[in-house]
Amino acid sequence: MTDDTQVHIESSNLTFEAVAARTTSDLALRRRLAEAHVVFLPLGPVQGFEGDVFTGALADLYEFVRTEGPTLRVEVASESDEPAVLILHWEFLDLGRFLVMKAAAPLIIGILANYIWSKLGSNTRKRRAARVRCEITTQLPDGSSRMARYDGPADTFEKTMRDIAAQAPTGGREDT
């Protein structure tokens, strides 16, 4: 990890059930959210806008995760098929916020790392300079959750997040 990397880890009370209940009253969508392996979460409150806002990479990344992880159940915590997204014209990759189950975390981190490299292309200088922002909350087998927020160079994202994931208690959700 380099000096300009910011990693924040804390316990969380976010769970798939809670996200499902908060997002929708549609029972079918609620069930899909509760049974998902990974859920895209809205960003925090955005000043000047009321309602949920997602990262600008949402549509692209959603498609990417579904293609790269065909066995994963991927959902977005939004009732709308056209959720509002935040576009900041600043050259860093804001991957957004995710809730993942413990067993799927390594796969998701690998897919996100592949996404980063697919976006940065073959320009090595760009790769070295690129920054990534991402927040992954992992639901542990005992029902508790742990949130890890990463803000740092693209090239250390995967290793840092894998190390964090490896430190969490092992095991998976019972329904996997």
Partner: peptide
């Protein structure tokens, strides 16, 4: 650099709204 909220995207090929699902 502008920061903005975008509520709708249209496909440049077919002109249809771009939807997640």
């Amino acid at each position: 650099s502008p920061g903005m909220i975008v509520k709708r995207f249209i496909c440049s090929i077919c002109g249809q709204p771009m939807k997640l699902r």
